[in-house]
Design a protein around this nucleic acid. Structure first.
Length: 351
DNA sequence: AAAACGTGGAG
DNA sequence: TCTCCAAGTTT
């Protein structure tokens, strides 16, 4: 039940947002929004998918490039898979890009190019989970849905001084967040809570002194804000090893492979090589005079560290070993590679 | 339901 | 160097 206190909180937050909203290329600011301007659902969807587990700073340029190249969901749906994966390269969590294309094609070909305007229908689409469905419904369609992302979890855990650890406390935090969600301006409200979490109620050293909710914050009163939200400790990351093989033809062409859609770096271009394990076997993709490049590539994934040895060889023009993609001098762009593969390329090039 | 899934910036 | 973690989703 929403009482007057909850109204005060969401109203205060909206007032703060009206004065301090950040500008972003996918956002309609509070002034325009109050004048009736609504955002393009395509741009809201694209930004929300890019922002999953990813900072605004990292997303910004990718969003501009994507929308410049594919301004509508229909144009994206018509794109080639490899083009989209290449444009996503470096942003991480590549399943997002595969699901992005699947989703664009469902919207284009089964929904006549228009995104569904409600939570339940959005949730059915590939790559759209509970957070993203609520975010699109609220931001693009002003539905009174409650977003629960890392920001909102942190703000709620602190505002209500909730010490139960995540992710178990998620349902409780969701109830608290839902009780605060206003019927008026739910889209701006969703962005307001997230902006507060991103700029004031930050994970480390929150700026309580300038927080609009300071006077009614339970963690502030108890001075527990620095230890909230609590989280279950995660497992340490093991270190794995691997070999990759970089072959260049005398005409400058590079030999790559397209990684399978399932698993790590799925769907992305990469150098052929071994599995990544404790004791990976040397396994050149074809017989040649392979030379080991001095040095190594170190890279950290979500759940393990990787040390990569790089091997190199040269081939005569015209040769095209089985199962490898030959990319000529002009086709090949290091920026199409996922970061770990680009690091391997950089070490090879610098050698 | 726990684990897989990227990367870069901050402290 | 190392840990944390950022507008999570899928299996």
């Amino acid at each position: 039940m929403r009482d007057s206190t909850e109204f005060d909180v969401s109203d205060t937050l909206l007032g703060w947002y009206d004065r301090h909203a950040r500008e972003m290329p996918w956002r309609i600011g509070p002034v325009d929004r109050l004048a009736g301007v609504m955002p393009d659902p395509y741009r809201v969807w694209l930004s929300e998918v890019m922002l999953q587990q990813t900072t605004v700073a990292a997303v910004h340029d990718y969003f501009v490039r994507f929308t410049s190249r594919w301004p509508t969901v229909n144009s994206l749906a018509a794109a080639e898979d490899g083009q989209v994966m290449g444009e996503w390269a470096g942003l991480g969590y590549y399943a997002r890009a595969r699901n992005l294309l699947k989703c664009a094609r469902v919207v284009a070909f089964e929904h006549d190019g228009r995104f569904p305007d409600n939570y339940d229908a959005l949730l059915k689409l590939p790559g759209i989970g509970p957070y993203t469905a609520a975010a699109i419904a609220a931001i693009a369609f002003d539905r009174p849905e409650t977003v629960l992302d890392g920001n909102v979890e942190r703000v709620m855990a602190r505002f209500y001084d909730i010490h139960a650890p995540l992710p178990g406390s998620k349902p409780t935090l969701k109830v608290k967040a839902a009780a605060l969600t206003p019927a008026r301006r739910p889209g701006d409200y969703a962005q307001a809570v997230m902006d507060l979490g991103a700029t004031i109620c930050t994970p480390k050293s929150p700026a309580c002194g300038i927080c609009p909710l300071c006077s009614s914050c339970s963690a502030r009163a108890a001075d527990t804000q620095a230890e909230l939200p609590r989280k279950v400790t995660k497992k340490p990351k093991p270190t794995r090893l691997g070999h990759v093989y970089i072959a260049q033809r005398n005409d400058g062409a590079m030999l790559l492979e397209r990684r399978p859609d399932k698993g790590l770096l799925g769907g992305m271009l990469g150098w052929p090589g071994s599995d990544w394990s404790d004791t990976p076997p040397e396994c050149p993709p074809f017989p040649a005079q392979w030379q080991e490049i001095p040095g190594e590539v170190r890279h950290t994934f979500t759940h393990f560290h990787l040390i990569l040895r790089i091997w190199a060889t040269e081939l005569p023009s015209g040769s095209a070993p089985n199962d490898l993609i030959v990319m000529d001098k002009h086709q090949f762009k290091p920026s199409d590679l996922p970061t770990v593969m680009r690091k391997a390329f950089d070490l090879w090039r610098g050698h």
